[in-house]
Design a protein around this nucleic acid. Structure first.
Length: 167
DNA sequence: TGCACGATCTCG
DNA sequence: GAGATCGTGCAT
């Protein structure tokens, strides 16, 4: 089955400890352990970009899980998200931290993301995908409110949908 | 056609 | 504490 078709909160938790694999243009490969994630869940979630409906920018989130959703923030940082959930239910998981690099803007910069990654399939891409970590330690994490979503209103801004790997 | 703003970071 | 920097959505 498609792991990414699970709901965003579950995927956000399960991604912790897995590895993002990035193959560069010169053929070399880097691996990064996912250390912090955030879940965005559907049009009802006022903090989710899809809360404004389906647009050119958000339409990838309406696909079945397994695609990359990237967008530019503050004119300079590419944010990396993993589309999750069933087709026509827009959900995504924001990758906030990899290894000891914490901060979604820094993640995008480290991975050298750009607009061309929009819609990339994590199942079949040859330059970015996710693998289970070889070391199978039990994963421990803590939850916290999401960052930068004060505008989303009482109900949504307090959701503990930010997940931080504990080591 | 224009404008305000954002799931941010760095520097001073 | 402010500046960098630009695509997007919504108002004009």
């Amino acid at each position: 089955m498609n792991f990414y078709a699970l709901d965003a909160v579950t995927v956000a938790q399960q991604l912790l400890g897995k590895e993002i694999v990035r193959r560069w243009d010169n053929g070399s490969v880097s691996r990064y352990v996912i250390s912090e994630t955030e879940a965005y869940f559907g049009e009802d979630d006022k903090a989710c970009h899809a809360s404004k409906g389906k647009t050119l920018r958000t339409e990838i989130m309406y696909s079945e899980g397994g695609y990359v959703y990237v967008y530019l923030i503050y004119g300079m940082y590419w944010m990396l998200n993993v589309v999750t959930g069933e087709k026509n239910h827009p959900e995504a998981v924001l990758i906030r931290g990899i290894n000891d690099i914490v901060g979604s803007g820094k993640v995008g910069r480290e991975l050298k993301l750009d607009k061309s990654f929009y819609g990339e399939s994590l199942i079949s891409s040859s330059r970015i995908w996710i693998e289970n970590s070889l070391d199978s330690h039990p994963i421990k994490y803590v939850s916290a409110p999401r960052v930068g979503v004060d505008y989303a209103g009482e109900k949504w801004r307090n959701k503990p949908w930010r997940f931080i790997l504990q080591r």
